[in-house]
Design a protein around this nucleic acid. Sequence first.
DNA 1: ATGGGTGCAAATAATTTGCAGGTAA
DNA 2: TTACCTGCAAATTATTTGCACCCAT
Lengths: 137, 137
Amino acid sequence: MAESIPGTARSTRQRGEILTILRETEDFKTAQQLFADLRQQGSKIGLTTVYRNLQALADAGEADTMRLPNGEQLYRLCGQGRHHHHLVCRNCGRTIDIEGPAVEKWTERVADEHGFTDVSHTLEIFGTCATCAAESR
Amino acid sequence: MAESIPGTARSTRQRGEILTILRETEDFKTAQQLFADLRQQGSKIGLTTVYRNLQALADAGEADTMRLPNGEQLYRLCGQGRHHHHLVCRNCGRTIDIEGPAVEKWTERVADEHGFTDVSHTLEIFGTCATCAAESR
DNA sequence: ATGGGTGCAAATAATTTGCAGGTAA
DNA sequence: TTACCTGCAAATTATTTGCACCCAT
């Protein structure tokens, strides 16, 4: 009944709960955060399940992931769009998708110039969003 | 006698050993790797000390740090140059410094357009270097 | 019925911290 | 001498895995 994740066979209550929460926001969340949110709203889901489903979503390409400077991993349903990067508020976590065709080409070219193949890259921009900046004043 | 790290008061044997190893390569190393290298060459240094000194180096701006896609933190003495990024071989860890003034400006502009302040960013390019590509053939 | 899913508890792994003893200055 | 440093052991934190049980199909 609940929706499914490509690569998985069944639809379960917990899977639905996870997807529901993820759809409620545009922003990234850590597995721990998501777990806390679910518990708070009364779900009896297990942390393990959260991790496993988030991993499944990422593997299926349904979720976007990135890492905080401190190393924690963040997940977010992705707009199934093309490759893009993020502008993340260091304070509230608000996330804005960014596209930079020029940067993509640049990384390709640079890697190529040095004889590197099978290239990929990570690019994230961190800052304080206008709202948070106003609050801290 | 051994050299010092800004922000610290003394020069110790272990500190010198760490700096020596770090100077032997252009590439990034994890704390664990560095620790293993030191032990292998007979040093009796403690893992804790390695972590503490690497952190001190990073705090002092003497070391550059970045994270592997898997989350492990890497350290390397930095050429005290200006801000730059890295092209890292996914296989052997060889690292090449990259500079991209255009990208720097682009991130600034993008963040600014969205009202973000206090901006910083991370950008790393991963790939397989020519040597490793040849070996795996 | 049955194999994919789940959850608890235990296992990993990287990194940090408490604390007693060592040592550079 | 003195307090900065070190190292061991224990504690933390994020995440993964073993395994018995459960439920969507």
